[in-house]
């Protein structure tokens, strides 16, 4: 029987770029792993509810019965298994043969690390606006901002974090207003009057303002705002 501390170390919950991973130890008997996962889920019920995670067998040999038992436990608490990963190619192959996804396809770029126990993401939640912002309208958000619609000329959008526009940006957008130069502005089309990230300002060219007819992302590179087309095949 393992003592408390060793038990604590048996199953690790890691926030990674790909989201939450449940990493299983190699040399611990399965019943105690199951018990520990149960405890972790109980202790952080709010955090895990509705979550999707990667079950990481790491160096542990994957056993179908163990996966099924874990899946049943996680299911009961509304947690979805996105993928099951393993360290060695043989183990991954075995998982794939059983029909599991072994890795997430294309990890998202700017997913923030979320440690279990943290109240919320570092920048707060995202504000969601589902309308076209017309001339004279403005929206401000403390955290990230998502706009489903266009940002027309004469409209102003300001966010403490990132700004995502599912539409055309023709007006002015300010991301990272509190000085976060890591903030980005993404849109289906970027034809802005002006873009601001942190304290930097980029304005449309005075002549021949051309419209990049593709989804694009604006970010800060070497102290300058750069706009790059978003190429799906690259990611």
């Amino acid at each position: 029987m393992l003592d408390g501390e060793r038990l604590e170390a048996s199953v690790r919950v890691r926030g990674t770029q790909d989201g939450v991973r449940l990493v299983l130890p190699r040399d611990v008997a399965f019943p105690s792993i199951l018990a520990h996962v149960h405890d972790v889920l109980e202790a952080r019920a709010a955090f895990f509810r509705g979550a999707a995670l990667v079950l990481d067998f790491s160096e542990r040999e994957p056993v179908l019965e163990e996966i099924v038992a874990l899946q049943r436990l996680l299911d009961a608490r509304g947690v979805r298994i996105q993928a099951i990963s393993a360290e060695t190619p043989e183990h991954r192959e075995r998982l794939a043969r059983w029909g599991f996804r072994t890795e997430l396809a294309g990890s998202p770029r700017r997913l923030r690390l979320v440690e279990p126990g943290a109240e919320e993401a570092p920048d707060g939640s995202a504000t969601y606006v589902r309308r076209t912002l017309r001339s004279g309208m403005s929206v401000e958000a403390e955290g990230h901002l998502v706009v489903i619609g266009d940002v027309n000329p004469g409209a102003l959008v300001v966010a403490g974090g990132d700004v995502l526009v599912w539409g055309v940006v023709r007006g002015t957008v300010h991301a990272g207003r509190n000085g976060d130069t890591g903030a980005v502005i993404a849109a289906l089309r970027l034809a802005p009057m002006q873009l601001r990230i942190a304290q930097l300002v980029a304005r449309a060219p005075d002549r021949g303002a051309h419209l990049l007819d593709a989804p694009a992302l604006a970010r800060v590179v070497d102290g300058q705002i750069v706009i790059e087309p978003w190429r799906i095949e690259r990611r």
Partner: peptide, 12 residues
Amino acid sequence: VRDADRIVGLVE
């Protein structure tokens, strides 16, 4: 057009 856009927003 800019002013019309403003008006459309106010009408909505």
